[in-house]
C-alpha cells in the first residue's frame, strides 16, 4: 500500500488538486451568496498552488498563497463586508437561456481539446534540475527566479511596480467620496 502510494504520488496529487480546482471554479459560478463563492475561490487558489509545487515552482506556489489567499481574498471579503452584501437586492436570475453560452463555450472547449489531441507533437519534459540552474550554477528555485527576474527582466519589473502604483492610486481615487458631496456636506454644517 505504502509502496503504491509512493510510486504514484504525482498522479494522486495532480488528480486531487485538479478535482479541487474544478470543483472550486464550479462553486464560484454556482453559489449565489458571494461569500460562499469567495471561499470556493479560495479552494481553487490553494489547489493551484499545489499544482505549482508539483511542477517544481515552489516560489510561485508561495507567492500564489501569499498574494491570492492572503491578499486578494481578504480584499474581496473586505469589500463584501464594506458594501454589506446582505442588504443589497438578491441576484434575481441567471441569463434567461443558457443555450447560447453553453454552445459557444462548449464548442470552444471541444475545438481546443481536439486541436491538442491531433497535434500530439510535444517534446519530452525537460530535466527538472534545469529549473534550479542559472548559467551552470545550481541553486534553489527562489534564487533562480530572482536571478532571472533581476538580471533579464529588470525593466519589466520596474514597469510592473509602476502599474501597481497606478492601480493603488486609482483604487484610492475611486474609493473616495465625490468632491461635490463633501463640499455640500461641509456647507450644510
Amino acid at each position: 500500500m505504502l509502496d503504491w502510494l509512493v510510486a504514484h504520488v504525482v498522479p494522486i496529487v495532480f488528480y486531487t488538486a485538479a478535482v479541487l480546482v474544478v470543483a472550486g471554479a464550479i462553486g464560484v459560478i454556482w453559489f449565489r451568496n458571494p461569500i460562499h463563492a469567495a471561499l470556493s475561490l479560495l479552494a481553487t487558489f490553494l489547489a493551484v498552488a499545489g499544482l505549482f509545487v508539483l511542477q517544481h515552482a515552489e516560489f510561485i506556489a508561495a507567492v500564489q498563497i501569499v498574494v491570492y489567499a492572503g491578499g486578494v481574498m481578504v480584499l474581496f471579503l473586505f469589500v463584501m463586508m464594506l458594501v454589506n452584501v446582505r442588504t443589497l437586492p438578491r441576484e434575481y436570475q441567471y441569463v434567461r437561456s443558457l443555450l447560447p453560452a453553453a454552445v459557444v463555450t462548449g464548442g470552444f472547449l471541444a475545438a481546443v481539446v481536439a486541436a491538442g489531441l491531433f497535434a500530439r507533437s510535444y517534446l519530452a519534459a525537460a530535466d527538472p534540475a534545469a529549473l534550479t540552474a542559472v548559467e551552470g550554477q545550481t541553486m534553489g528555485n527562489t534564487e533562480a527566479v530572482g536571478w532571472v527576474l533581476y538580471r533579464d527582466f529588470l525593466l519589466p519589473f520596474e514597469v510592473v511596480s509602476l502599474v501597481l502604483l497606478v492601480a493603488m492610486l486609482g483604487a484610492i481615487v475611486m474609493g473616495r467620496k465625490d468632491r461635490r458631496e463633501e463640499d455640500a456636506g461641509e456647507e450644510a454644517r
Binding site: H56, V67, G71, A126, L131, V145, V163, L164, A167, V173
Partner: peptide, 28 residues
Amino acid sequence: RQAGDVTGQVFAVFLITIAAAEAAIGLG
C-alpha cells in the same frame, strides 16, 4: 517545466501582480 526554463515562472510573478492590481481596481 516543459522547457526547463525559469523565465515562465518569472512571467507568472508578473501575472500575479497584474491580477492583484486588477482586483484592487475592480473592487474600487
